[in-house]
Every structure is written in structure tokens, then in C-alpha cells.
Nucleic acid binder design. Structure first.
Lengths: 181, 181
DNA sequence: CCCGTAAGTTCATTCAATGAACCTTTAGTG
DNA sequence: CACTAAAGGTTCATTGAATGAACTTACGGG
């Protein structure tokens, strides 16, 4: 954590996790990558994050091994950011935070999104368990769908619009974004 | 989140969660409450957090309903901070973050602590499942024990020393701390 | 040649974190 | 009764990060 001091003597795992992903914006960036966002400008449009901060966060995450920066076109040179195994493993933490907020920090009208286990076509429960097969659904097998609270969602940037369609996690969202313009 | 702007239009559950518990130090304070820390001075000794920031974080958490402030002695008036149901429900998120760090952000020598499901006397796995009974162990049924990496833990404040002994989560730690002085 | 897009960088301003010092109430000790 | 210590704060000057607007670079298209 780049805040003068780090979490110092805290030789605790929670502290080490927060050093990497506990800064402002960081977990929202990672969440967006699960949703399929991969490009600088798409993060920017979706999060309204200052460009300098986004640059810094992406660099930290690539540095730490959470994201991988990958060239997807040579001229002009363009890179995208994708999750490594380490990054994908953050899913349980992100999902747990989201479910906690859905239960205890309610917004207008219920969950904006829900997650279905694709092989079973069943919405997973609060702990991430698929009621149909009884297993914990890995993010790659989840499809994000608009939930009952989607009406409350007011953003109109291309990324937000693209995210209103059912979409497999981790799949690149950009084709959908491009089509939405 | 008290940073000029909140996470704005982000009508997302992850963003709402981070508004409450995403600020620097906040999740470490909550983690400490799970460990049994309840008093201002004990948080301070264990976390090396500036007093003004600790005051602010505790106030935010009480305000949000994550912690409850409870008088435990009248003269001089002294309060302790305990988890509400809302606060206890943060356990899966905190545990997931810790396990992620243990796996991917390794420190000197393995986990500093491990968590055992008391009824089964069995260490739970990375997802929080008890291998013996097959259920997800709620925090109140967990005992925190020193893990293989405990040697790497250098802090010598009374709270850290007290946390080296096996200890049931959510139980007040103060008697142990007082005995350690 | 001019415009547009993607992905940045630079910079002045604002705002929060830090750490030291101070304050208040009460209990214990000689 | 004076003195000291502990708990739980508050105040304040300094540091450093976040913000947002403007500028930069590299290319492609008309």
C-alpha cells in the first residue's frame, strides 16, 4: 500500500492481502476484470477513476502478479489486462464482499446482478454454492445476469450498458461494448 | 468512504461494501474484533494505528452497524466495541482475503495462524469448510491457533503476545492480554 | 493535412493520514 | 492530600495521495 507507511509489523495474511488490493479503487478494478473489462479506456469509462490513479493501480496489480498485461494489437500498440491465476483466486473474496453488501447495505431494490452456474443454469447462493450441483462455482463457470435491482442502475456509459446483458465472467466484454456504441 | 468523492454512480454491491469497509485500516480493525480485541487501547497497541484514525474508523463502523459500542464499566466510563450480526457476517470476506494472501502473497514461513472447527477439532480448509463435518464453519465455532509461520511473527505488544495462545474467535481477549502484562 | 482514438503523463489543488502533544476523568499509592 | 498512571480521546502542523483538467504520443482514416 503506497501510503507513506505500509501495514508495518502486521505479519498477518489479511494485512498482506490489503497491501496489494486494499487501496482505493483496486478491488473495483479487479471486479471489472472479472466482468470482462480489459482496456484502459473501458475501466475509465465504467469507474470514473482518475487516469493517473488507474495507471498506478494497473501497474501495481501487474507488478504483484494479479493481472497480466498482454499485447493484443501491434500498431498502434495496444495492451489489455487479464487476470492471472492469482487474480482469479480473488473471486471468493470479491463475491463475499458483494453478498455481504447485498444483505446488509441494501440499495434501492435488491441485487443489481446475479450469478448463475452455467452447467446447471442455476443461480448460486450467498456462499457461492450452486444449489443444483452442490459445488462451489468457479468464476469461469458463472454467468452474470441482471438482477431485480437493475432498474436502480443509472449509469449510461457503454460499459455499463454492455453489462446489462447476460455475460460469462472472464470473457472479454469489448465486442459487446463496441456493439453498444 | 470519506475521500472527497464516494464511489459515485457505482450502484454495485462491491462498491457499497467498500464504501463501508474499504478504507485504510478498517478491515484490520474488524479482523481484530474477530480475534477478540474490543478496547481502544488494545486496537492501538496491536495495529499501531494513529489514534485519530482509530477514533474515526470505530465511529464509522458503529454508525454503519458493523460494531456496537457497549459500556462495560461505569466509573470511569469505559466502552468496548463488539460485532453485530452485520459485522459477524463479514467473516467470509475476511477469511477469503486471508487465505488468498496465504496462498499467493507468501511471507517467511507459512500461515501465522490457522482456524479449527471446535466441535470437530479439525482445521478448516481454504474455503472455510470443515473437512470433518463438511459444513462451512461459522466464526463463533472457530478456534484460532498458531500456525507453522508463527516464528516469523515479531511483534511483542501485549495483544500480539496474547494472540499466540489458542483462542476462540469472538471471545473477549482482554483477560488474556491483562494476564500477559 | 486535419481529426479522432487509445493510453498515457504532468501538474496544481484538495483532502486524508500521520504522529506528537495535549486533555479529561478516575483509581491507586505514599 | 498530592502525585502518578491508565484509558480514551482531541488538536494541530506536516506529509503525501487523490482528483481533475490539460497536455502528449502514436497511429489510422478521410
Amino acid at each position: 500500500m503506497a501510503l507513506g507507511k505500509d501495514y508495518l509489523g502486521q505479519e498477518c495474511a489479511v494485512a498482506r492481502a490489503l497491501e496489494l488490493v486494499g487501496e482505493r479503487w483496486t478491488l473495483l478494478v479487479v471486479r471489472d476484470v472479472f466482468y470482462g473489462v480489459r482496456r484502459f479506456s473501458d475501466f475509465q469509462a465504467h469507474l470514473d477513476i482518475p487516469r493517473a490513479v488507474l495507471t498506478a493501480r494497473l501497474a501495481t496489480l501487474v507488478d504483484a502478479g494479479v493481472l497480466e498485461r498482454r499485447r493484443y494489437q501491434e500498431s498502434p500498440p495496444r495492451d489489455e489486462y487479464v487476470l492471472t491465476d492469482m487474480g482469479v483466486s480473488l473471486w471468493p473474496a470479491i463475491y463475499a464482499l458483494a453478498q455481504w453488501a447485498i444483505q446488509y447495505v441494501p440499495s434501492a431494490a435488491g441485487a443489481v446482478r446475479e450469478f448463475a452456474h452455467v452447467p446447471c443454469d442455476t443461480v448460486v447462493d450467498r456462499t457461492g454454492l450452486c444449489p443444483a450441483c452442490g459445488r462451489v462455482a468457479p468464476p469461469g463457470e458463472l454467468e452474470m445476469r441482471p438482477g431485480p435491482g437493475i432498474h436502480a442502475y443509472k449509469r449510461t456509459d457503454p460499459v455499463s450498458l454492455a453489462l446489462r446483458k447476460p455475460h460469462r465472467l472472464l470473457e472479454p466484454l469489448h465486442p459487446v461494448i463496441a456493439a453498444a456504441v
